[in-house]
């Protein structure tokens, strides 16, 4: 049953004293799948990941990873996992190269060419001490150690934090390559856009509970974005507020601001009747718009209970 599942959690629950970290998580990640794990800060993403790695023990429920028990089979399991912590801190004062040699040795040997290839790809100089590196470069070293032994399952907690946009793209390329190689990727994020680019499915947690699991294709249609259009002349808001999917229309002189749920087509066609100077379309802020979509209807008071 579990052979085709990389991760299976059943009623996985973690309380820290009275404080709820995660409650009743039922999640399946298929082998070979890239799953994004989304949610605002404090939603339980890192708690979930640390439960899967057996750093935390569940209060209730259980997790099965690669068909193994995280606690009983820790040694065998961790050999097949590449883990990038969300709060990255490296032990010791080693150079990046020495540190990566340690990680390689600890996992039973990794071809050094694999490390240099990743380092080249992410453009990081391994001869420098990790402690002296910038946050972005540390993140790159963290990514290299997670990918270097080509693990069956990559568990990445906020993998793109600290990376510049170019390197974020490079990282997404690495994830695509991992999927092509049959590896499973479970990555947390609070940025919808980056997950959307590579993930097959997205799981959304909020306030310690699973809010939704969606295929990425269906997410795209739902994505709410803020659009700002600068016209040459003042426009009439009524021409826009009636359009399908368009709401919160505010017009001040020649500038129109609104939010669009789904496709932009109707808005663009309406705007095209005027002379357009500029158009800005911002990625939706996950925490404010996307998640609120899931939570307007159910349990809006959950958030207030989550952190007493």
């Amino acid at each position: 049953m579990t052979s085709d599942l990389a991760v299976l959690t059943e009623d996985l629950t973690k309380f820290y004293g009275d404080h709820r970290g995660l409650e009743g998580l039922n999640l399946e990640v298929g082998a070979g799948e890239v799953m994004g794990f989304l949610g605002p800060n404090g939603a339980g993403k890192t708690t979930t990941i640390r439960l899967l790695l057996d750093f935390l023990r569940p209060t209730q429920g259980r997790a099965t990873v690669l068909g193994l028990d995280p606690r009983r089979d820790k040694a065998a399991l961790h050999r097949q996992i590449g883990y990038l912590p969300g709060e990255l801190a490296f032990p010791g004062r080693d150079t990046a190269a020495d540190l990566l040699r340690f990680f390689g040795d600890a996992r039973g040997g990794v071809a050094w060419s694999r490390v240099t290839e990743l380092a080249g790809r992410l453009e990081v100089d391994l001869s420098r001490p990790v402690r002296a590196m910038s946050k972005g470069n540390k993140q790159k070293v963290g990514l290299i150690q997670a990918f270097m032994h080509q693990p069956a399952l990559l568990i990445l907690d906020e993998p793109t934090s600290g990376l510049d946009p170019l390197m974020q793209q490079e990282f997404l390329g690495m994830v695509r390559d991992a999927r092509s190689a049959g590896q499973t990727v479970f990555m947390s994020s609070h940025v919808l856009a980056e997950v959307q680019q590579v993930a097959d499915r997205v799981a959304i947690v909020r306030a310690g509970r699973l809010a939704a699991v969606e295929r990425v294709e269906s997410l795209g249609r739902r994505a709410v974005r803020a659009v700002e259009i600068h016209f040459h002349d003042p426009v009439d808001p009524r021409a826009f507020s009636a359009l399908p999917g368009v709401s919160d229309v505010v017009v001040s002189g020649p500038v129109l601001r609104c939010t669009v749920d789904g496709r932009l087509d109707a808005l663009i066609k309406a705007a095209a009747r005027h002379e357009v100077v500029d158009l800005l379309s911002a990625e939706p802020d996950l925490e404010e718009t996307f998640l609120s979509f899931y939570y307007h209807s159910e349990g809006a008071d959950d958030a207030s209970r989550a952190r007493p």
Binding site: H78, I81, Y83, P85, L88, P91, F103, A106, G108, G142
Partner: peptide, 10 residues
């Protein structure tokens, strides 16, 4: 925080 990566040893 260095524990995370150390403890991830197999």
């Amino acid at each position: 925080g260095g524990m995370e990566l150390l403890l991830a040893s197999p």
